[in-house]
Every structure is written in structure tokens, then in C-alpha cells.
């Protein structure tokens, strides 16, 4: 007796056990995070004007890029969902959006710490900061649509639509705030990236990739949990049907 007749139709592969692939992905992600910690704290040079504090930059930029990457995954999966109506894309979008919000929260927390020590202000309405803040709010709103009541396919449709609009909005927000910020504020913030030395660039690139692997591992795990939850819901529906009869 199998519960899952419509497995094919859902496009899901229902398997809740931890597999070898899982362990490998996790292993690589953890190892890369450890190596990147070594690169950040010991290997890379200390920046001359800002001092050791400048090293916040590695985790900050690493998480920021991967938050964007996660939202990119949401965008692509949203389009694919609307085009194919396969539930698996909705599952990926759900998970990626949640992890993206976690990453952007890290960005929003580490940013002010760096800003406070480097520029002596907690916040400045600089284009990158403004657009990160708006990005944060867009995906909070996305999560609010997720929490709506109703059937999954309705939520999936609305989320997909909002995921597309939200992602298209991001570059426009950046452009607008760049124009706005440069007009009404003196440059409090110096251009970063100008004075990066070789081993700093290496540390940065490595950290970005380490977080990308971490992101992949998290999405992988999140998707499996989400599939298990769908499976659970199916079982409950089946049982309810049986009892009802």
C-alpha cells in the first residue's frame, strides 16, 4: 500500500533520509567555512587605514552576494513555476527565499558594525545600504505572502508573481538610490575595492564561494524537509479521507 500515487504529478522525489550526497555537500561547506575563517583572520593582510575591522568586509560581502544569489534562485524558480506549474519549483523558491532572508539579516547586522567602526556612523543612506534595506523589506513581504492562508497552488502563484516583480525592482532601486544619494549627501563613504591587495582578493573570492556552498547545502536540506512536509500532508489527507469514509 503506497501513499504516494501522485508523486510523479508533483514532480517530487520523496525521500526523507539523509544520503551520502548530503553528507558530502555539508562536509565541503563546513570545510570551506573553516578555511575561509583561516583566510580571514590569519592569511589576509590587515588593511592600512581601517585596520583589522576591515576584515568584517569578507563575511559581509560574502553573505550579501549569496543573499542576491538566493533571490536570483527565487526569481528563476518563480518564472519556471509559472511556466510549468510543477510544485518542485515552488518548493525551491520557498526555501531559497527563506535562506536569502537569513543571509540578508546577517548583512544588515554586520553592515552597521563595520560602518560604526570605519565611518563612525551606524547607518548612512548610501546606495548599497539603501537598496539592501529595500531588498530586505521586499523579501519580508514575500514571506508574508507565503504565510497567507489558502491552498498551496494559490500561494505558489502569488509568491511567484511577487518574486518576479521584487527581483526586477532591485536594480531599479539601486539605480534610483545611487542618483538620490549622490545628489543630496556628501561622500561619507569611500569607494571600496580600490586598495585590495592580492591575498585580500583571494580571501574574498574564497569566502564568497564558501558561503555559496553553504547556501547550496542549506537549500538542499531545506528542499528535502519541505518535500517531507508535503508527504506528511498527503498522509494526513489520506487518513482523513479513510476515517471520513
Amino acid at each position: 500500500m503506497s501513499f504516494f500515487k501522485n508523486e510523479e504529478e508533483l514532480g517530487l522525489n520523496l525521500n526523507t533520509r539523509t544520503t551520502l550526497v548530503n553528507h558530502i555537500v555539508y562536509g565541503i561547506a563546513f570545510a570551506m567555512i573553516l578555511v575561509s575563517a583561516y583566510l580571514i583572520f590569519i592569511y589576509s593582510n590587515i588593511e592600512k587605514t581601517m585596520g583589522a575591522v576591515q576584515k568584517i568586509f569578507y563575511v559581509h560581502v560574502g553573505t550579501a552576494w549569496n543573499a542576491l544569489l538566493a533571490f536570483g534562485v527565487v526569481f528563476v524558480c518563480s518564472i519556471l513555476y509559472l511556466a510549468t506549474k510543477k510544485r518542485i519549483y515552488d518548493v525551491y523558491a520557498t526555501v531559497a527565499a527563506e535562506i536569502g532572508v537569513v543571509f540578508i539579516i546577517i548583512v544588515m547586522l554586520t553592515g552597521p558594525i563595520w560602518a560604526r567602526s570605519a565611518w563612525n556612523v551606524w547607518w548612512s543612506w548610501e546606495p548599497k545600504l539603501t537598496s539592501a534595506l529595500i531588498l530586505f523589506f521586499i523579501y519580508i513581504a514575500y514571506t508574508m505572502i507565503r504565510f497567507m492562508d489558502g491552498s498551496w497552488d494559490k500561494k505558489a502563484r502569488l509568491c511567484a508573481v511577487f518574486g518576479i516583480i521584487g527581483f526586477i525592482d532591485v536594480p531599479i532601486v539601486y539605480f534610483a538610490s545611487e542618483w538620490w544619494g549622490s545628489k543630496f549627501h556628501p561622500t561619507v563613504v569611500g569607494q571600496e575595492g580600490g586598495g585590495l591587495e592580492g591575498n585580500m582578493v583571494f580571501a574574498l573570492v574564497f569566502t564568497v564561494f564558501a558561503f555559496s556552498f553553504f547556501l547550496t547545502a542549506l537549500i538542499h536540506k531545506g528542499v528535502r524537509i519541505e518535500k517531507a512536509r508535503i508527504e506528511l500532508q498527503h498522509m494526513k489527507d489520506k487518513i482523513a479521507e479513510k476515517i471520513g469514509r
Binding site: 523589506f137 513581504a141 516583480i165 521584487g166 525592482d169 532601486v173 534610483a176 542618483w179 538620490w180
Partner: peptide
């Protein structure tokens, strides 16, 4: 929900 959805998306227009 509507203000939460509208304000971030409308930011560029507002600026």
C-alpha cells in the same frame, strides 16, 4: 499586507 507589499516595490518611484 498591502502597504508592506507596496512601499518597498514603489521605492524607486517615490525617490
Amino acid at each position: 499586507l498591502l502597504p508592506l507589499l507596496l512601499f518597498p516595490i514603489a521605492t524607486p518611484a517615490l525617490i
